[in-house]
Design a protein around this nucleic acid. Structure first.
Lengths: 251, 251
DNA sequence: GATATTTGTTCGTATATCGCACGGATTAAA
DNA sequence: TTTAATCCGTGCGATATACGAACAAATATC
């Protein structure tokens, strides 16, 4: 008996959907076959299935996903209490401090935004629910990595391609592990332009009522108006207050 | 030979994912089987496949989606040019007028938000990319319905459960069809508290360079500060200007 | 413009998956 | 506690699907 409880056709199809990430709007059959490692015939069958169901369009040459695909992520966002619960807190926090604020969870070595309240844009990239950032150089990522067992975090970081997005980005494994220990000790993480020049942020963990870290909350600010060194002084109390309120609400 | 280009295992799996919508965080095997109409054994195999791939969790009793599911919607948002292209326009528009602004496309009888710039929250519900609203009572929905052939819009509306969310909601099929004709003629749609009391909005179509309507753009405002009758006067020129700019950019 | 390479599609068959039915476990009702 | 009612996991036969190869069409290369 070799794994009878597994629908490989389904798994293959999901691989096909994910092949469209990374700014690849239109893919031909062979492109999909290559990025997924599937046989061309199989990739074609999956793609045509997506078209048949309305999740994709086909112009005879290229396939492109349709907005119906968003139903899948929406199934998560609308079924999980977290985004709905935190959004109002996020809104008032963001308005009070006049900066963008977000909540994210971890998925592998990436941070996934589940809710966000944005003020004037300061980042070049556009963040929204479902957006992803590498955990090792994001404030919420540091917090979430610090919350897991050290060896698990080390393994995760070790397996990650750690790019230096700016001259400030910390990429050395041991340096990062020390950073995580510090974050664990002080209860928050500060990022100073490691992801993008001119942008710094501070994050705290969000615990549920049983004390388990389920997400992270952050505030991002332009380095020009708020130096990284001032972040804790200015925003930590507000962040902690929101975290405390949410601890009572999160089951 | 009947439909050889279709992977029904894949299609079944997607049905399983969508079963988690509508605020159902945790589902047992039988729940999924019921909502999807699949056999229990099949539903179970799909769910275990999701767990195996990390898209879902299983506590021995209930299944719940994980944030990894967002990768699927993210594949669309990051691969489709539309959200990235419109976001900066949305941001500056929203900031200029001091109200929330959004872009959406149509999927069936629903409007799907693909980008949004929000100011202070005025709605009770939380909107973000991937959120859905019934087309018949949303300003962007009216615009998008008006852009399709009348009989197609009529069929879509006829098949839709048209709930009166407020006393102002228009639900009569013929009234709505007349409304669409008016929208088509004047080139914009105004909604006065049909979705939620205290909220009104105005939307215009977004055309690509070939003149095809590919999305809708709106501004929402509290009825208390901006009466519905003033919406066109105050915001239509700004909306039209953005639409004109985007017409040059959208392929 | 001819050849070489890549791409999309079809086909047959070995294999995996589906739906059904059954037994054990769990929960609900009495 | 007993009974009834679900619910869950598992084989089995029938059916559907994946793979690889082969062919045709399109594209690239020279």
């Amino acid at each position: 008996m070799i794994e009878t409880d597994f629908v490989s056709g389904f798994a293959r199809g999901l691989r096909v959907i994910e092949a469209f990430g990374e700014s690849k709007p239109k893919l031909a059959i062979t492109d999909v076959a290559k990025t997924t490692g599937l046989d061309r015939a199989t990739a074609r069958r999956c793609l045509l299935t997506l078209v048949e169901l309305g999740y994709a369009e086909y112009d005879g040459k290229f396939f492109a996903l349709t907005p119906k695909i968003l139903r899948l992520g929406h199934a998560y966002l609308s079924s999980t209490p977290l985004p709905q619960i935190v959004q109002p807190f996020l809104d008032s926090l963001s308005e009070k401090v006049g900066q963008s604020s977000s909540v994210s969870v971890i998925d592998g070595a990436e941070v996934v935004y589940v809710a966000r309240a944005s003020q004037r844009r300061v980042m070049s990239i556009n963040l929204m629910a479902g957006s992803r950032l590498p955990a090792y150089c994001a404030s919420m990522g540091r917090v979430l990595l610090a919350a897991m067992p050290a060896d698990q975090a080390r393994t995760l970081l070790d397996e990650t391609q750690r790019t230096a997005f700016t001259p400030h980005t910390k990429t050395d494994l041991n340096v990062l592990m020390e950073e995580l220990a510090e974050v664990r000790k002080q209860g928050f993480a500060v990022i100073d332009q490691e992801l993008e020049l001119g942008l710094c942020s501070i994050a705290v963990p969000l615990e549920d009522s049983r004390g388990r870290v389920v997400a992270a909350l952050n505030i991002g600010a332009p380095a020009a108006s708020v130096p990284a060194g001032d972040l804790a002084k200015r925003y930590l109390d507000d962040l902690k207050a929101v975290a405390a309120s949410l601890r009572l609400v999160l089951r």
